[in-house]
Design a protein around this nucleic acid. Structure first.
Lengths: 190, 190
DNA sequence: AATACTCTTGACCGCTCGGTCGGTTTTGTG
DNA sequence: CACAAAACCGACCGAGCGGTCAAGAGTATT
Protein backbone atom coordinates (compact mmCIF):
# COMPACT_ATOMS: atom_id res chain seq x y z
CA UNK A 1 0.00 0.00 0.00
CA UNK A 2 1.03 3.57 -0.61
CA UNK A 3 -0.19 6.92 0.58
CA UNK A 4 -3.81 7.92 1.05
CA UNK A 5 -5.42 11.35 0.68
CA UNK A 6 -3.50 14.38 1.87
CA UNK A 7 -4.31 15.63 5.36
CA UNK A 8 -5.71 18.87 3.99
CA UNK A 9 -7.70 17.22 1.23
CA UNK A 10 -11.07 18.26 2.61
CA UNK A 11 -9.96 21.81 3.34
CA UNK A 12 -8.68 22.18 -0.22
CA UNK A 13 -11.91 20.83 -1.57
CA UNK A 14 -13.81 23.31 0.56
CA UNK A 15 -11.58 26.16 -0.56
CA UNK A 16 -12.21 25.21 -4.18
CA UNK A 17 -15.91 25.11 -3.46
CA UNK A 18 -15.95 28.56 -1.93
CA UNK A 19 -13.64 30.11 -4.50
CA UNK A 20 -15.61 28.64 -7.36
CA UNK A 21 -18.88 29.77 -5.78
CA UNK A 22 -17.63 33.36 -5.70
CA UNK A 23 -16.56 33.17 -9.31
CA UNK A 24 -19.74 31.44 -10.46
CA UNK A 25 -21.91 33.93 -8.61
CA UNK A 26 -20.05 36.92 -9.99
CA UNK A 27 -20.13 35.81 -13.62
CA UNK A 28 -23.21 33.61 -13.70
CA UNK A 29 -22.81 29.86 -13.66
CA UNK A 30 -23.21 29.27 -17.37
CA UNK A 31 -21.02 32.15 -18.41
CA UNK A 32 -18.32 31.27 -15.89
CA UNK A 33 -15.71 28.97 -17.38
CA UNK A 34 -13.86 26.32 -15.44
CA UNK A 35 -10.63 27.86 -16.69
CA UNK A 36 -11.69 31.16 -15.13
CA UNK A 37 -12.83 29.57 -11.90
CA UNK A 38 -9.52 27.74 -11.62
CA UNK A 39 -7.52 30.88 -12.28
CA UNK A 40 -9.58 32.77 -9.71
CA UNK A 41 -8.77 30.00 -7.20
CA UNK A 42 -5.11 30.20 -8.11
CA UNK A 43 -4.91 26.66 -9.48
CA UNK A 44 -5.02 24.94 -12.85
CA UNK A 45 -8.23 23.73 -14.39
CA UNK A 46 -6.96 20.16 -14.35
CA UNK A 47 -6.61 20.37 -10.59
CA UNK A 48 -10.26 21.17 -10.12
CA UNK A 49 -11.00 18.05 -12.12
CA UNK A 50 -8.77 16.16 -9.73
CA UNK A 51 -11.08 17.13 -6.89
CA UNK A 52 -14.37 17.20 -8.76
CA UNK A 53 -15.50 15.03 -11.66
CA UNK A 54 -17.44 17.79 -13.46
CA UNK A 55 -18.62 21.37 -13.31
CA UNK A 56 -22.07 20.08 -12.49
CA UNK A 57 -20.84 18.02 -9.55
CA UNK A 58 -18.95 20.99 -8.24
CA UNK A 59 -22.10 23.09 -8.38
CA UNK A 60 -24.07 20.37 -6.66
CA UNK A 61 -21.60 20.16 -3.80
CA UNK A 62 -21.57 23.93 -3.38
CA UNK A 63 -25.35 24.03 -3.11
CA UNK A 64 -25.68 20.89 -1.02
CA UNK A 65 -23.16 22.22 1.48
CA UNK A 66 -24.81 25.60 1.62
CA UNK A 67 -28.35 24.34 1.98
CA UNK A 68 -27.33 21.72 4.50
CA UNK A 69 -25.74 24.34 6.71
CA UNK A 70 -28.74 26.60 6.28
CA UNK A 71 -31.15 23.87 7.32
CA UNK A 72 -29.07 23.26 10.44
CA UNK A 73 -29.07 26.93 11.37
CA UNK A 74 -32.77 27.27 10.77
CA UNK A 75 -33.60 24.13 12.70
CA UNK A 76 -31.63 25.47 15.62
CA UNK A 77 -33.62 28.70 15.50
CA UNK A 78 -36.89 26.88 15.17
CA UNK A 79 -38.13 27.75 18.64
CA UNK A 80 -37.40 31.45 18.35
CA UNK A 81 -40.35 32.33 16.17
CA UNK A 82 -40.37 34.23 12.90
CA UNK A 83 -38.10 36.96 14.22
CA UNK A 84 -35.48 34.39 15.13
CA UNK A 85 -35.80 32.58 11.83
CA UNK A 86 -35.40 35.75 9.80
CA UNK A 87 -32.38 36.77 11.85
CA UNK A 88 -30.90 33.29 11.52
CA UNK A 89 -31.32 33.13 7.76
CA UNK A 90 -29.98 36.60 7.10
CA UNK A 91 -26.95 36.10 9.30
CA UNK A 92 -26.27 32.68 7.79
CA UNK A 93 -25.95 34.39 4.42
CA UNK A 94 -23.33 36.70 5.87
CA UNK A 95 -20.39 34.90 4.27
CA UNK A 96 -22.41 32.93 1.79
CA UNK A 97 -24.02 35.50 -0.45
CA UNK A 98 -22.38 33.86 -3.44
CA UNK A 99 -23.67 30.43 -2.54
CA UNK A 100 -27.10 31.87 -1.90
CA UNK A 101 -27.21 33.63 -5.24
CA UNK A 102 -26.13 30.45 -6.98
CA UNK A 103 -28.86 28.53 -5.24
CA UNK A 104 -31.44 30.90 -6.60
CA UNK A 105 -30.35 31.12 -10.19
CA UNK A 106 -28.28 28.06 -10.98
CA UNK A 107 -30.14 25.23 -9.27
CA UNK A 108 -32.21 24.80 -12.38
CA UNK A 109 -29.24 23.92 -14.55
CA UNK A 110 -28.80 20.67 -12.65
CA UNK A 111 -30.52 17.52 -13.94
CA UNK A 112 -33.63 16.47 -12.04
CA UNK A 113 -31.93 13.74 -10.05
CA UNK A 114 -29.36 16.15 -8.71
CA UNK A 115 -31.94 18.82 -8.01
CA UNK A 116 -34.05 16.48 -5.92
CA UNK A 117 -31.98 16.36 -2.73
CA UNK A 118 -31.47 20.12 -2.86
CA UNK A 119 -35.16 20.74 -3.29
CA UNK A 120 -35.72 18.44 -0.33
CA UNK A 121 -33.56 20.77 1.75
CA UNK A 122 -35.52 23.75 0.53
CA UNK A 123 -38.75 22.07 1.48
CA UNK A 124 -37.53 21.60 5.03
CA UNK A 125 -36.77 25.30 5.21
CA UNK A 126 -40.19 26.12 3.86
CA UNK A 127 -41.87 23.74 6.27
CA UNK A 128 -40.16 25.29 9.27
CA UNK A 129 -40.99 28.82 8.16
CA UNK A 130 -44.53 27.76 7.40
CA UNK A 131 -44.96 26.48 10.96
CA UNK A 132 -43.73 29.79 12.31
CA UNK A 133 -46.09 31.73 10.05
CA UNK A 134 -48.92 29.47 11.05
CA UNK A 135 -48.21 30.06 14.73
CA UNK A 136 -48.43 33.79 14.13
CA UNK A 137 -51.53 33.72 11.92
CA UNK A 138 -53.42 30.52 12.78
CA UNK A 139 -56.55 31.28 10.81
CA UNK A 140 -54.95 31.03 7.36
CA UNK A 141 -56.25 28.53 4.83
CA UNK A 142 -53.59 26.26 3.30
CA UNK A 143 -53.32 28.31 0.11
CA UNK A 144 -53.03 31.55 2.00
CA UNK A 145 -50.57 30.04 4.47
CA UNK A 146 -48.36 29.01 1.58
CA UNK A 147 -48.65 32.45 0.00
CA UNK A 148 -47.80 34.17 3.29
CA UNK A 149 -44.82 31.86 3.83
CA UNK A 150 -43.49 32.57 0.37
CA UNK A 151 -43.96 36.26 1.00
CA UNK A 152 -41.56 35.96 3.92
CA UNK A 153 -39.04 34.09 1.79
CA UNK A 154 -39.37 36.76 -0.86
CA UNK A 155 -38.35 39.35 1.67
CA UNK A 156 -35.27 37.56 2.96
CA UNK A 157 -34.21 36.08 -0.37
CA UNK A 158 -34.42 39.45 -2.03
CA UNK A 159 -32.03 40.99 0.44
CA UNK A 160 -28.87 40.16 -1.48
CA UNK A 161 -30.28 41.81 -4.59
CA UNK A 162 -30.25 45.31 -3.17
CA UNK A 163 -28.03 45.29 -0.11
CA UNK A 164 -24.47 46.48 -0.55
CA UNK A 165 -22.15 45.80 2.40
CA UNK A 166 -21.22 49.00 4.18
CA UNK A 167 -24.10 50.96 2.69
CA UNK A 168 -27.49 51.48 4.30
CA UNK A 169 -28.77 49.27 7.09
CA UNK A 170 -26.58 46.50 8.45
CA UNK A 171 -27.73 42.93 8.15
CA UNK A 172 -28.72 42.87 11.80
CA UNK A 173 -30.66 46.12 11.50
CA UNK A 174 -32.45 44.86 8.44
CA UNK A 175 -33.26 41.59 10.21
CA UNK A 176 -35.03 43.65 12.89
CA UNK A 177 -36.88 45.74 10.35
CA UNK A 178 -37.91 42.68 8.37
CA UNK A 179 -39.04 40.97 11.56
CA UNK A 180 -41.24 43.94 12.47
CA UNK A 181 -42.54 44.10 8.94
CA UNK A 182 -43.49 40.44 8.81
CA UNK A 183 -45.13 40.40 12.23
CA UNK A 184 -47.11 43.49 11.33
CA UNK A 185 -48.03 41.99 7.97
CA UNK A 186 -49.25 38.76 9.49
CA UNK A 187 -51.16 40.34 12.36
CA UNK A 188 -54.36 41.04 10.46
CA UNK A 189 -54.13 38.21 7.95
CA UNK A 190 -56.95 35.69 7.96
CA UNK B 1 -36.59 53.41 -55.32
CA UNK B 2 -37.55 49.93 -54.28
CA UNK B 3 -39.58 48.54 -51.44
CA UNK B 4 -39.27 49.60 -47.81
CA UNK B 5 -39.95 47.56 -44.67
CA UNK B 6 -42.85 45.15 -44.73
CA UNK B 7 -46.09 46.38 -43.23
CA UNK B 8 -45.88 43.81 -40.46
CA UNK B 9 -42.22 44.40 -39.76
CA UNK B 10 -42.78 45.66 -36.23
CA UNK B 11 -45.25 42.93 -35.35
CA UNK B 12 -42.79 40.27 -36.51
CA UNK B 13 -40.05 41.89 -34.49
CA UNK B 14 -42.33 41.90 -31.47
CA UNK B 15 -43.27 38.26 -32.02
CA UNK B 16 -39.59 37.36 -32.19
CA UNK B 17 -39.01 39.30 -29.00
CA UNK B 18 -41.76 37.51 -27.14
CA UNK B 19 -40.93 34.06 -28.50
CA UNK B 20 -37.26 34.49 -27.72
CA UNK B 21 -38.08 35.78 -24.24
CA UNK B 22 -40.05 32.61 -23.50
CA UNK B 23 -37.21 30.46 -24.73
CA UNK B 24 -34.53 32.45 -22.94
CA UNK B 25 -36.49 32.41 -19.70
CA UNK B 26 -37.15 28.68 -19.87
CA UNK B 27 -33.56 27.67 -20.58
CA UNK B 28 -31.61 30.53 -19.05
CA UNK B 29 -30.19 33.24 -21.28
CA UNK B 30 -26.65 31.90 -21.46
CA UNK B 31 -27.66 28.32 -21.96
CA UNK B 32 -30.27 29.19 -24.56
CA UNK B 33 -28.84 29.09 -28.07
CA UNK B 34 -29.93 31.33 -30.89
CA UNK B 35 -30.51 28.21 -32.96
CA UNK B 36 -32.93 26.97 -30.30
CA UNK B 37 -34.64 30.32 -29.93
CA UNK B 38 -35.11 30.50 -33.69
CA UNK B 39 -36.50 26.98 -33.86
CA UNK B 40 -38.86 27.75 -30.99
CA UNK B 41 -40.08 30.80 -32.92
CA UNK B 42 -40.50 28.70 -36.06
CA UNK B 43 -37.91 30.60 -38.09
CA UNK B 44 -34.27 30.17 -39.04
CA UNK B 45 -31.45 31.57 -37.00
CA UNK B 46 -30.38 33.75 -39.90
CA UNK B 47 -33.78 35.42 -39.85
CA UNK B 48 -33.39 36.53 -36.26
CA UNK B 49 -30.13 38.12 -37.32
CA UNK B 50 -32.04 39.87 -40.05
CA UNK B 51 -34.17 41.57 -37.42
CA UNK B 52 -31.61 41.86 -34.63
CA UNK B 53 -27.87 42.45 -34.92
CA UNK B 54 -26.91 40.24 -31.97
CA UNK B 55 -28.19 38.09 -29.13
CA UNK B 56 -27.30 40.90 -26.77
CA UNK B 57 -29.30 43.47 -28.71
CA UNK B 58 -32.26 41.15 -28.76
CA UNK B 59 -32.08 40.78 -24.99
CA UNK B 60 -31.80 44.53 -24.57
CA UNK B 61 -34.90 45.14 -26.63
CA UNK B 62 -36.86 42.51 -24.73
CA UNK B 63 -35.98 44.11 -21.41
CA UNK B 64 -36.36 47.69 -22.59
CA UNK B 65 -39.81 46.96 -23.93
CA UNK B 66 -40.85 45.16 -20.81
CA UNK B 67 -39.55 47.73 -18.36
CA UNK B 68 -40.91 50.60 -20.42
CA UNK B 69 -44.39 49.11 -20.33
CA UNK B 70 -44.06 48.42 -16.63
CA UNK B 71 -43.07 51.99 -15.89
CA UNK B 72 -46.13 53.21 -17.79
CA UNK B 73 -48.46 50.92 -15.88
CA UNK B 74 -46.96 51.87 -12.56
CA UNK B 75 -47.04 55.56 -13.32
CA UNK B 76 -50.71 55.24 -14.17
CA UNK B 77 -51.35 53.56 -10.82
CA UNK B 78 -49.31 56.12 -8.94
CA UNK B 79 -52.27 57.74 -7.25
CA UNK B 80 -53.78 54.51 -5.99
CA UNK B 81 -51.39 53.92 -3.14
CA UNK B 82 -49.36 50.84 -2.36
CA UNK B 83 -52.31 48.52 -2.82
CA UNK B 84 -52.83 49.84 -6.34
CA UNK B 85 -49.16 49.65 -7.19
CA UNK B 86 -48.86 46.06 -6.05
CA UNK B 87 -51.95 45.10 -7.98
CA UNK B 88 -50.69 46.94 -11.06
CA UNK B 89 -47.27 45.31 -11.01
CA UNK B 90 -48.56 41.80 -10.42
CA UNK B 91 -51.16 42.07 -13.14
CA UNK B 92 -48.65 43.60 -15.55
CA UNK B 93 -46.57 40.44 -15.18
CA UNK B 94 -49.57 38.36 -16.16
CA UNK B 95 -48.36 37.72 -19.70
CA UNK B 96 -44.81 38.74 -19.13
CA UNK B 97 -43.46 36.31 -16.58
CA UNK B 98 -40.73 35.33 -19.01
CA UNK B 99 -39.65 38.91 -19.58
CA UNK B 100 -39.77 39.55 -15.86
CA UNK B 101 -37.63 36.54 -15.08
CA UNK B 102 -35.14 37.60 -17.73
CA UNK B 103 -34.97 41.06 -16.25
CA UNK B 104 -34.02 39.62 -12.91
CA UNK B 105 -31.38 37.15 -13.94
CA UNK B 106 -30.05 38.20 -17.33
CA UNK B 107 -29.77 41.96 -17.05
CA UNK B 108 -26.28 41.56 -15.67
CA UNK B 109 -24.97 39.89 -18.80
CA UNK B 110 -25.35 43.15 -20.70
CA UNK B 111 -22.41 45.54 -20.88
CA UNK B 112 -22.65 48.58 -18.61
CA UNK B 113 -23.71 51.00 -21.35
CA UNK B 114 -26.66 48.80 -22.28
CA UNK B 115 -27.59 48.22 -18.66
CA UNK B 116 -27.74 51.92 -17.91
CA UNK B 117 -31.06 52.81 -19.57
CA UNK B 118 -32.68 49.70 -18.11
CA UNK B 119 -31.46 50.53 -14.65
CA UNK B 120 -32.85 54.02 -15.16
CA UNK B 121 -36.27 52.45 -15.73
CA UNK B 122 -35.89 50.38 -12.60
CA UNK B 123 -35.01 53.48 -10.62
CA UNK B 124 -38.21 55.14 -11.69
CA UNK B 125 -40.17 52.14 -10.45
CA UNK B 126 -38.31 52.24 -7.17
CA UNK B 127 -38.88 55.98 -6.82
CA UNK B 128 -42.61 55.63 -7.32
CA UNK B 129 -42.87 52.75 -4.88
CA UNK B 130 -40.70 54.62 -2.42
CA UNK B 131 -43.08 57.57 -2.49
CA UNK B 132 -45.99 55.28 -1.77
CA UNK B 133 -44.14 53.63 1.11
CA UNK B 134 -43.20 57.01 2.45
CA UNK B 135 -46.82 58.13 2.35
CA UNK B 136 -47.78 55.11 4.42
CA UNK B 137 -44.89 55.33 6.90
CA UNK B 138 -43.75 58.95 6.94
CA UNK B 139 -41.40 58.66 9.90
CA UNK B 140 -38.82 56.43 8.19
CA UNK B 141 -35.23 57.56 7.87
CA UNK B 142 -33.82 57.39 4.33
CA UNK B 143 -31.99 54.12 4.95
CA UNK B 144 -35.04 52.51 6.47
CA UNK B 145 -37.28 53.88 3.74
CA UNK B 146 -35.07 52.28 1.16
CA UNK B 147 -35.04 49.00 3.06
CA UNK B 148 -38.83 49.03 3.40
CA UNK B 149 -39.25 49.82 -0.29
CA UNK B 150 -36.98 46.96 -1.29
CA UNK B 151 -38.91 44.71 1.03
CA UNK B 152 -42.03 45.43 -1.00
CA UNK B 153 -40.19 44.72 -4.25
CA UNK B 154 -38.92 41.49 -2.75
CA UNK B 155 -42.48 40.41 -2.16
CA UNK B 156 -43.78 41.15 -5.65
CA UNK B 157 -40.63 40.11 -7.51
CA UNK B 158 -40.54 36.80 -5.71
CA UNK B 159 -44.03 35.93 -6.84
CA UNK B 160 -43.01 34.27 -10.08
CA UNK B 161 -40.59 32.01 -8.21
CA UNK B 162 -43.25 30.11 -6.37
CA UNK B 163 -46.56 30.76 -8.09
CA UNK B 164 -47.77 28.16 -10.58
CA UNK B 165 -50.71 29.24 -12.74
CA UNK B 166 -53.84 27.36 -11.80
CA UNK B 167 -52.50 26.29 -8.41
CA UNK B 168 -53.05 28.11 -5.16
CA UNK B 169 -54.14 31.74 -5.00
CA UNK B 170 -54.84 33.61 -8.20
CA UNK B 171 -52.75 36.64 -9.10
CA UNK B 172 -55.56 38.95 -8.03
CA UNK B 173 -56.05 37.15 -4.72
CA UNK B 174 -52.36 37.28 -4.01
CA UNK B 175 -52.28 40.96 -4.87
CA UNK B 176 -54.89 41.51 -2.14
CA UNK B 177 -53.01 39.40 0.35
CA UNK B 178 -49.72 41.12 -0.45
CA UNK B 179 -51.41 44.50 -0.16
CA UNK B 180 -52.74 43.64 3.30
CA UNK B 181 -49.39 42.25 4.30
CA UNK B 182 -47.49 45.34 3.24
CA UNK B 183 -49.89 47.79 4.82
CA UNK B 184 -49.78 45.80 8.04
CA UNK B 185 -46.02 45.61 7.87
CA UNK B 186 -45.60 49.32 7.34
CA UNK B 187 -48.12 50.39 9.96
CA UNK B 188 -45.79 50.21 12.96
CA UNK B 189 -42.54 50.97 11.17
CA UNK B 190 -40.64 54.02 12.30
C1' DA C 1 15.81 3.49 -0.32
C1' DA C 2 12.20 1.88 -3.04
C1' DT C 3 7.64 2.45 -4.32
C1' DA C 4 3.00 3.50 -5.26
C1' DC C 5 -0.09 6.78 -5.14
C1' DT C 6 -1.70 11.81 -4.67
C1' DC C 7 -1.05 16.36 -6.29
C1' DT C 8 -0.25 19.35 -9.87
C1' DT C 9 0.35 21.08 -14.61
C1' DG C 10 0.25 22.57 -19.83
C1' DA C 11 -1.20 20.85 -23.97
C1' DC C 12 -4.71 18.95 -26.28
C1' DC C 13 -9.66 17.32 -28.22
C1' DG C 14 -14.39 17.34 -29.79
C1' DC C 15 -18.28 20.04 -29.70
C1' DT C 16 -21.44 23.77 -29.60
C1' DC C 17 -21.98 28.47 -29.69
C1' DG C 18 -22.75 33.33 -31.72
C1' DG C 19 -22.39 35.11 -35.89
C1' DT C 20 -21.62 35.36 -41.25
C1' DC C 21 -22.27 34.46 -46.11
C1' DG C 22 -24.03 33.40 -50.64
C1' DG C 23 -28.01 32.50 -52.48
C1' DT C 24 -33.26 32.13 -53.53
C1' DT C 25 -37.84 33.87 -53.11
C1' DT C 26 -41.09 37.48 -52.34
C1' DT C 27 -42.92 42.06 -52.77
C1' DG C 28 -43.53 47.01 -53.02
C1' DT C 29 -42.42 50.70 -56.26
C1' DG C 30 -41.25 53.22 -60.66
C1' DC D 1 -43.10 44.66 -66.36
C1' DA D 2 -38.60 45.45 -64.46
C1' DC D 3 -35.93 45.50 -60.58
C1' DA D 4 -33.98 46.61 -56.18
C1' DA D 5 -34.36 45.77 -51.72
C1' DA D 6 -36.53 42.97 -47.90
C1' DA D 7 -37.49 38.43 -46.24
C1' DC D 8 -35.84 34.26 -45.64
C1' DC D 9 -32.66 29.92 -45.51
C1' DG D 10 -28.76 26.05 -45.23
C1' DA D 11 -24.15 25.74 -44.81
C1' DC D 12 -20.30 27.38 -42.96
C1' DC D 13 -16.48 29.54 -39.56
C1' DG D 14 -13.49 30.84 -35.64
C1' DA D 15 -13.60 30.94 -30.75
C1' DG D 16 -14.17 29.23 -26.37
C1' DC D 17 -16.18 25.74 -23.75
C1' DG D 18 -16.10 21.30 -20.62
C1' DG D 19 -13.33 17.73 -20.15
C1' DT D 20 -8.99 14.48 -20.90
C1' DC D 21 -4.29 12.99 -20.80
C1' DA D 22 0.52 12.06 -20.22
C1' DA D 23 3.94 13.34 -17.38
C1' DG D 24 6.61 15.48 -13.43
C1' DA D 25 7.05 16.47 -8.55
C1' DG D 26 6.15 15.41 -3.83
C1' DT D 27 5.18 12.26 0.07
C1' DA D 28 3.27 8.64 3.26
C1' DT D 29 4.03 3.84 3.60
C1' DT D 30 6.84 -0.57 3.44
Amino acid sequence: MARGLARDHDEKRAALRHGAAQYFARHGFDRASMTGAAKSCGVSKALIYHYYPSKEDLLFDILDDHLGALVEVVEAARSEGIRGLIRAVLSAYEDADAEHKLQLDALSVLPADKQAPLIAHQRRLVAIMSDAVSAEAPALTPDRLRAATMTVFGIVNWFYMWHRPGKGLSRADYADLAGDFVLGGLRDLT
